[in-house]
Simulated assay, not measured.
Amino acid sequence: MSAAAPPARIEPFRLRGANFNLLVLRLLDPRVEVVVPAIGDQFRRAPGMLRHAPVVIGLDDLAVRPDEVDFAALVAGLREHAILPIGTSGGSAEMRAAAQSAGLAPLRGAGHDTAPPIAVPVVAEPAPVAPPPESSITPARPTMFVDQPVRAGQRIWAQGADLVINGTVNPGAEVIADGSLHVYGALRGRAIAGGSDNMQARVFALQFDPELVSIAGYYAVRDGYGDAPMGRAVQVRLVGETMRFDRIG
């Protein structure tokens, strides 16, 4: 007797909403022949910094006509460096349309609804009651704990939380926290804090030697650490738009 055929699936696929942590590549210069070589230079100083990473092209800083940006050449140049541009953020409607013709869909951040407002009838309401005074205590941010080393090729993201690594972050690994990042060991991979644009986030490491460190989209690679005490216990924070490296202890 032949085996019974497996039952057919009722539905071949499902769609659901999800939030992802994506890097935004803010274009400060519209010239592809300037941007792509600059990215290549960063790759030479920090191999694998963005390799195979999906990125969003930020358009808010461009004050040029849409026809002055060759989006098709930009996409091709980024892919040559193994960067995967998936869409755009910000910019004028004309600029977004020009990018979309090169396959870059306009994206919006989670929680930003672009639907038109709905008109509702005005109804008389009773006088509002004064709300109770708000507590001055800020709710504690949740924390994600990782109790083993982070190997090359691994990516760990603490969504909406601080991240504590009790071990080494090896070269080629990436650790991301929407809040602050604590590494109780050697930090040798890529460290990203303030993933939700939290400029108050910080990075702490007992042995500071990362390939890349970033807070709220501002980043530095090894050549940009200045006088940071490499190999020591270090705290990284933003002062304005400048990254500061302070020795701990």
Rank of each mutant, 00 (worst) to 15 (best):
V129K: 08
G90L: 00
A105I: 08
E134W: 01
A124C: 06
P121T: 15
H112A: 10
S89M: 11
V164D: 11
V146F: 09
R108K: 02
L104Y: 07
P128I: 03
A119F: 06
G87H: 04
A140N: 02
S101I: 01
G153S: 07
Q100K: 08
P139L: 09
F145T: 02
Q154C: 07
G103A: 14
G111R: 14
S101T: 08
G111M: 14
I86C: 01
M95P: 03
M144W: 00
A127D: 11
E94G: 03
N166V: 03
A158I: 10
G153R: 03
L107R: 07
V120A: 12
S101K: 13
D162S: 09
A115Y: 05
R108C: 00
Q159E: 11
P128L: 09
G87E: 04
V120Y: 10
E125N: 07
A102Q: 04
I165R: 03
S136F: 04
V122T: 12
V123K: 09
H112R: 14
I86D: 00
A98L: 02
P133Y: 15
L104Q: 06
T138M: 12
A127E: 13
S92I: 06
G103C: 12
V150Y: 14
R151G: 10
D113F: 01
A102K: 02
A110E: 10
M144C: 00
E94K: 10
A127W: 05
V120W: 05
V150L: 15
T88S: 01
A105Y: 03
G109D: 10
M95Q: 05
L107H: 07
Q159C: 00
R96D: 00
G111Y: 14
Q154P: 01
S135V: 12
T88Q: 01
P139K: 11
D147P: 09
P128H: 01
R141W: 10
P149A: 11
Q154K: 06
G91K: 07
P121F: 11
D113T: 02
A161F: 04
R155E: 09
M95R: 01
P131N: 01
P133H: 15
V164C: 08
G167R: 09
V146R: 14
D147V: 12
P106I: 06
R151P: 00
T143I: 15
Q159W: 02
P126I: 03
A152Y: 11
T88L: 02
S135E: 12
Q154Y: 04
R108I: 02
D147Y: 14
G91V: 12
S101Y: 00
P126F: 04
W157Q: 02
S136E: 07
A119P: 00
P126Y: 05
V146E: 12
P132N: 13
